[in-house]
Amino acid sequence: MGKKKLTPYLLIAPYIIHFGLFVAFPVVFSLVLVFHRWNIISPMEYVGPGNFIRLLGDTFFWQSVLNTLYFILIHVPLQLLIAISFALILNLPLRMLGVFRAIYFLPVVVSGVVVTILWQQLFGYENGILNRLLTYLTLPRIGWLTDPDIAMPSIAIMATWKNVGLYIILFLTGLQTVPVQLYESADLEGATAWQKFRHITIPMINPTILLVLVLSTIGGFSLFIEPYVMTGGGPLSRTLSSVLYIYKQGFFFYHMGYAATMGVTLTAIILVVVIIQKKYVERNT
């Protein structure tokens, strides 16, 4: 009998060990690190709140947070809009939907590095496809990645292109749970398409909206590889994302304590943003 009691613990043992080593320890250790200065090759040095004081005055960090929020502010609504539109159409009784769905999903499975290298060329100033198209339409060319005001929106467009397929599928799944009877009774009352969309579809797919919001917001806070490959954080630090800055401080300059401090602060910021989103969506539907 004793052995039987032990079995579940044996089964979860790998999880517990892994949790202790790779989750609990790092979390605790990062809370230790925030009070220390440490360049990894010298002994750790206690600095009290020194890292936080430095963080408060670090314009690059706050700019990176603003940049990341700006990215999210463009990326997330764009994503929602495009994903819902495509999902609505894919939910219509048409042919070849499977093929379209598969095509839209393609960028989702391809590595972000591929997408980034590819779009770096599309965004090229002299000979990029996008600017050639603009020239063809006799419009002025755009410094997609070199104009400080446009670089981040460009990256947001690219990120939307890469991820929107996933969210189309999520919305499609959500739409398919809406009972058809609801639309039919609305039709009897003479509701317009917009009214049906606003008062039936939106409330019914509300959980999906929240999900997509939260997922793409958290995804937005992880922005790294795109600016790392395309811009290095420039021009004028306008595409410096928070993770890129943490990477730079941690793995370029080896300020482990300071980088950990930024990680903790960023976690708090993410938490606040997600909670606000949740509250907002719940209140407005």
């Binding site: 790092p26 806070f221 793995f251």
Partner: peptide, 11 residues
Amino acid sequence: LPFQLTLIPQY
């Protein structure tokens, strides 16, 4: 937990 929190200590 976002990975940003544990990145440095894990390294």
